[in-house]
Design a protein around this nucleic acid. Structure first.
Lengths: 211, 211
DNA sequence: GTCTATAAAAAGATAGAC
DNA sequence: GTCTATCTTTTTATAGAC
């Protein structure tokens, strides 16, 4: 049983923890900082959640649903696979711009808390692969390795976020320039998608054996 | 002044620290673990290096030279920019397969120790951009935003390393399959490079205004 | 359910002998 | 230069009153 106040506190802690964990990662996060954000005492945190670990796990299980934007619907509707991927790129980049810490957070969970990752179900990538292979079979896109494509696509999307400081440092970009690069990122990736997948891109040097 | 034994110990500590920091990152690394690896006492570590922080800094300053493989030479020799980039991709991926922790390490430094990153000089990316823009001007490659290209290229290269568990989980790959994907990765990226940069790729739908 | 006070554990750093 | 033993600090976790 849970009173309103109880639920509210618990929610505040969860929200505070999410902010802290996303921004700083598990190791650099402090239970004290989470308590401060939630405007409660550290003891409360341990009352509602056994430990930092347990809190982290609960936050992740909740957050796992939002690691990718909702694109499932459009996946079924869209008959044109290239258009679908382009739409995904638009959605995903807009989503990441709103939630820039998501990629690093996800990768940290993947490296340091694999068991958590395995507990949740994230099937967007596998669906993408399946849709990709169906599209190849239907000859609406050029034959290609679906897994490699997904890795490339994800890499191109998340690179500016997981490597923000790196990119700024390497290319010498100030905040404004960095954000300009971000804003133009979706177009860049879509160009790649179209270029790679459009079938019968007029003859290059080599051609695969196909009718 | 430094005796041989002294230098040897210091080197052992540095080597041990590098291994630990690369594999686990700063936060999860333990001075005790480093001492164990180096077969010395924790006190020795603090004798040769003031603190964990100082040790980390020295390791990074040393490692910074090896964050990218040596490609400077071939950059000047190679007149064909596309070939040069392809060669870089081959070199870089082979290098990363040998040093799979480098990308994550670099990104962690970039996010949690920016000041260290700023102290060292890593000019490969800027050189790439410069060479890219020169190649555009010389019309040996298609006009394109150099910075976006570099971000894409890096993203495609490092994604399988920074997101190993993620990819394995998402795509359901066991170790063998993951390594197969890695082995084929260079070809995948080079395909992208050629596709994107080769000039006058026979007419698509739209064309840029150009002679 | 919430707090104050305190314990316990972990990890980094130092003192001092050899 | 190297060690053992110890201190200090940081951070997580619990006891117990209200």
């Amino acid at each position: 049983m849970m009173s309103d106040a109880d639920a509210d506190t618990k929610q505040r802690i969860l929200a505070a923890a999410e902010a802290e964990f996303l921004a700083r990662g598990y190791d650099r996060s402090r239970t004290q900082a989470i308590a401060d954000r939630a405007q409660i005492n550290k003891a409360m945190l341990h009352y509602h959640f056994r430990s930092k670990d347990e809190l982290f796990a609960q936050v992740f299980r909740e957050k796992a649903k939002q690691l990718f934007p909702q694109v499932e619907a459009s996946l079924r509707e869209q008959p044109d696979f290239i258009r679908f991927v382009c739409r995904f790129v638009d959605l995903y980049l807009a989503y990441l711009i709103e939630n820039p810490f998501l990629p690093s957070y996800l990768m940290q969970v993947a490296t340091n808390h694999v068991e958590l990752l395995q507990q949740v179900q994230i099937d967007l990538p596998k669906r993408l692969v399946a849709a990709f292979e169906a599209a190849v079979k239907a000859k609406v896109i050029r034959p290609h390795d679906a897994r490699q494509f997904v890795v490339s696509l994800l890499g191109m999307c998340v690179m500016p976020f997981v490597g923000k400081n790196l990119i700024q440092g390497f290319l010498g970009l100030d905040e404004r320039e960095y954000h300009a690069l971000l804003a133009a990122r979706a177009e860049e990736i879509k160009r790649y998608v179209v270029l790679l997948l459009t079938p019968e891109h007029p003859p290059e040097r080599r051609r695969t054996k196909e009718a």
